[in-house]
């Protein structure tokens, strides 16, 4: 699974326009073998953008009926940033129960997990996994893949911001320290050697590597180093 996800994210990393995010969301849905995936971004300007696998009739009905005003997922997730299992939400009101029933009738699964994302300049997004399964299977799935999905969700958001930002994304620029850390790893130094050389603790080195990994849209350190080399951000 990890290797396939790697390939998929690499393809998304190479994408040059927002339509690639649509196919990435479908690809991710297939890789994880779940019913649906939704990525929905809202900028501080109010501009919205979404890539999702929901059937079009359901999207149309949702928009037409302003379901976002009664949807417990939206009401819960567009505030705070705690990931939310749909089971934990309050579906007891009549409109919420009707919404859930309509969703199922339109091909949605009964389980869901939504990850709120905070981006720069007040941007926020919601990344939702929807599936049809019993509670046990769903519990195993969320425990097994939540960490993976968290990284994938943020990666999709970073790519969306970069592709939407006319080519420059200052929040994705590597800091001098992050560049130093990746350069030493690329030169074959161990973490201990790199930390020693930069006169910082290994915990601190790990943070610079992790931040660089995130900004570069890499799944792991090896991928981050390769990515920085190929983009000419570090040189040997």
């Amino acid at each position: 699974m990890a290797r396939k996800l790697d390939d998929l994210l690499e393809r998304l990393g190479d994408a040059t326009d927002l339509s690639a995010l649509d196919s990435a969301v479908f690809d991710l849905r297939d890789r994880y073998d779940v019913e649906h995936l939704v990525y929905h971004s809202v900028k501080s300007s109010g501009d919205q953008w979404a890539a999702l696998t929901y059937p079009q009739p359901w999207v149309d009905a949702y928009v037409e009926n302003n379901f976002q005003t009664i949807d417990p997922v939206v009401l819960s997730c567009f505030r705070g940033f705690t990931p939310v299992d749909w089971k934990r939400l309050d579906w007891s009101s009549r409109p919420a129960r009707a919404l859930f029933g309509e969703g199922i009738a339109n091909g949605l699964g009964n389980q869901g997990f939504s990850l709120p994302i905070r981006g720069p300049s007040g941007q926020f997004a919601l990344f939702t996994v929807n599936h049809r399964s019993g509670d046990d299977t769903w519990g195993k799935f969320t425990r097994g893949y939540m960490h993976d999905l968290l990284l994938a969700a943020h990666f999709v958001n970073e790519r969306a911001l970069a592709l939407d930002g006319e080519g420059h994304a200052p929040h994705q620029a590597l800091s001098p320290r992050e560049t130093d850390a990746l350069t030493l790893l690329a030169a074959g130094k161990s973490r201990a050697q790199a930390a020693e050389r930069l006169k910082i603790s290994e915990h601190t080195l790990r943070v610079y590597i992790e931040s660089a990994r995130f900004k570069l849209g890499a799944l792991n350190t090896t991928h981050a180093v390769a990515n920085a080399l190929s983009r000419g951000l570090i040189c040997l």
């Binding site: 994302i117 943020h154 800091s175 001098p176 320290r177 943070v207 992790e210 931040s211 990994r213 900004k215």
Partner: peptide
Amino acid sequence: FPHLTGGGPIRSPLI
């Protein structure tokens, strides 16, 4: 305070 964190912001969903 980006000058205190290696010359730029530290960013990660894990931090």
